[in-house]
Design a protein around this nucleic acid. Structure first.
Length: 271
DNA sequence: CTAGGGTTAG
């Protein structure tokens, strides 16, 4: 794929211009049927929210590989079509295309949102049989899924068994413990971390709110040097959740103006 | 060539 084509694709600002580029690419059959190019178009159709076109394109591919299946599944998950995404995974399996670690990671959100722990265990059990039992991407997905389904101990077992962990592994545990009301366990992991980021801190603060330990939440927030928009929002909504409107108000007012601008810019972008 | 953790979910 030549660089000018890449430049053209990344300049596509709308579904309309993307379709136009696609039409031009279709003239060259060898180019249009390259897995790389197909994958790019699937991802771009997803970016512009056109699952229909992504699926239409996918249906014309004679033997889609795991990359292309993953792109389509990812598009459906992004579109919050969780059941459809799971269905695609089973179709993929029936077509004897083995999932990649990224396929399994893509389907995680579907399983979590539908609270399909049992199916999750089946899916990741198969994934392990495909050789992904010590794959960081898959293990992180499993941890997150288990935590979101309340399977705290199972998540911990996976975490403890990992040869290599990254920030996402640690933060998923901290966030997961927090959501399950286990702020103390989250804190233990947090204290043992070598490097933390804003997500580690914010997740723990949120965990303390969830556990009803407002004092500790506030103390931690004050110690935080890496506050970002989400950190401030967790504080505001944390106070609101316990009915402390005054504290919520003062946190809101203490928020740097630059953060407020972030919010407004985001909102304007939607309009 | 791909994914993922904290706000925010009805």
């Amino acid at each position: 794929m030549n660089p000018s084509m890449l430049r053209l694709l990344n300049r596509a600002q709308s579904l309309k211009s993307l379709k136009y580029i696609h039409a031009r690419v279709l003239i060259d059959v060898s180019l249009a049927s390259s897995d790389l190019v197909l994958n790019m178009f699937l991802r771009l159709y997803e970016r512009f929210g056109s699952i229909q076109y992504a699926h239409k394109l996918f249906d014309q591919i004679p033997q889609p590989n795991a990359f292309l299946w993953t792109a389509l599944i990812h598009a459906y998950v992004g579109n919050r079509s969780y059941l459809e995404a799971l269905y695609l995974l089973s179709e993929m399996w029936e077509d004897s295309v083995l999932p990649s670690n990224f396929t399994l990671a893509s389907v995680r959100k579907s399983l979590a949102r539908l609270e399909r722990v049992r199916d999750g265990k089946t899916v990741y059990g198969l994934g392990f049989k495909c050789g992904f039992c010590s794959d960081l991407i898959v293990q992180n997905a499993v941890i997150d899924l288990f935590m979101r389904c309340g399977e705290v101990d199972l998540a911990r077992r996976v975490f403890d068994g990992m040869e290599e962990k990254d920030l996402v592994s640690w933060n998923s545990m901290i966030s997961g413990y927090g959501h399950n009301g286990r702020a103390n366990l989250a804190r233990k992991l947090f204290d043992g971390m070598l490097d933390r980021n804003a997500i580690s801190w914010t997740s723990l603060v949120q965990g303390y709110f969830k556990a009803g330990d407002i004092k500790e939440a506030k103390m931690l927030f004050d110690r935080m040097t890496t506050k970002d928009l989400a950190s401030w929002n967790v504080m505001v909504s944390g106070f609101l959740d316990v009915g402390d409107v005054d504290s919520a108000q003062s946190v809101f007012e203490a928020m740097p103006a630059s953060r407020c601008w972030d919010v407004e810019l985001d909102d304007f972008r939607v309009l």
